[in-house]
Amino acid sequence: MKLKTVFAATLALSVVAGAVGAAEAPQVVRKDMMEGMGKAMGGLVNIVKGKTEYNADVVKASLTTMVDTMKTFPDQFPAGSETGHKTEASPKIWQNMDDFKAKAAKLGTDASALLAALPADKAAVGAAVKTLGADCGACHETYRLKD
């Protein structure tokens, strides 16, 4: 149990670290942010798959990461960062910035609501993963181009 709490704390910290490293190129910052999102999602998916036991701290940390990241993620797409650093950002982001921001806000809002109710067992985490996963997909569908 102790170990998991430490893991949860590390997750939360890594987000803060991501936000602080603002001197880096925005392409790098946003990729790091997204890797943090992957890890946060991983914490939840592992519970659903039974790879780890249900742990409220992990759930809380994952959801907090999502809420916090979505607040600043859309700011990492200034003009001039459309290419470079192997970015997988789609040019459509800059054509529809408002919609892109709305997609980020949707995930932020859903994660906030889940955080407030805090999924209390494996089944509830499963339902949360469905909601959140759909939000990730809705943005990646239009705004991320795999290379």
Partner: peptide
Amino acid sequence: ASYLETGMTPDFDSVGGSMVEVQ
């Protein structure tokens, strides 16, 4: 199989592009 069910890759990236509808 899990990617096709949930849209999550083994490293917890989420499906994107035209694969979203397929998934």
